[in-house]
Simulated scan of single mutants.
Amino acid sequence: MAKQPTRDDVARLAGTSTAVVSYVVNGGPRNVRPETRKRVLEAIEQLGYRPNASAQSLSRGRSDLFALLVPDLANPYLAELAQRLEEEFFRRDMVLVVGDSHDDQDRESTILEAFRRQQIAGLAWYGVTQPLPLDLLEDASFPVVLLNEPDGQRMGNHSRITRLVADEQEAARIATEHLLQHGRTRVAMVAGPKGRHNARERIRGWRLALRQAGLDEGVVINGPFTRAGGVQAAQALIDSGADAVVVSNELQATGLLRELHRAGVAVPEDIAVVVLNGTALSEFLWPPVTSVDVPVSSQAEAIADFVTGTDRARDLSVTSRLTKRASCGCSYFSKD
Rank of each mutant, 00 (worst) to 15 (best):
F225E: 09
E283A: 14
G122H: 05
G229I: 13
A228I: 13
N26G: 08
V25C: 03
G230W: 09
S320R: 06
D8H: 11
F115S: 11
L47N: 11
A233F: 06
E259Y: 07
Q212P: 00
I203V: 15
L69R: 12
D270Y: 09
V289D: 07
G127D: 12
R39F: 07
N277G: 08
T110H: 09
L112P: 02
A266K: 10
S240P: 13
L276I: 07
E108I: 07
M155E: 09
L179I: 05
R154T: 13
A304Q: 06
S17C: 09
V292D: 08
T185G: 03
N198Q: 11
I44E: 05
W286S: 13
E217N: 04
R207C: 08
E217D: 14
Q212D: 15
L47H: 13
P150R: 05
T36H: 00
S334I: 04
A304W: 06
G214Q: 11
E138M: 00
A82E: 13
V187D: 01
V220A: 02
P287I: 12
T310R: 15
D93V: 00
L179Y: 05
L322Q: 11
Q118L: 12
R227G: 00
I271A: 04
D135S: 10
A2V: 15
A304F: 03
G15I: 10
A79Q: 03
V165E: 12
G241F: 02
A272V: 03
Q46L: 12
L123Q: 02
V246L: 09
A188C: 03
A140M: 05
T6I: 06
D151Y: 10
G183P: 03
D243S: 09
A253R: 00
R163E: 10
D135G: 02
P76Q: 08
Q56I: 02
V25I: 15
L208D: 14
H178A: 06
G122M: 06
F306W: 09
T6W: 05
L322S: 11
P268K: 04
S297H: 11
H158I: 08
N52A: 08
D239W: 01
N157Y: 01
V219Q: 14
Y23A: 03
I120P: 04
G27K: 04
I120V: 15
H197S: 12
S109D: 14
E113V: 02
N222Q: 11
G192N: 08
A302H: 03
A175D: 05
L147K: 10
R173V: 00
G255K: 12
S57A: 15
Q299L: 13
G27P: 08
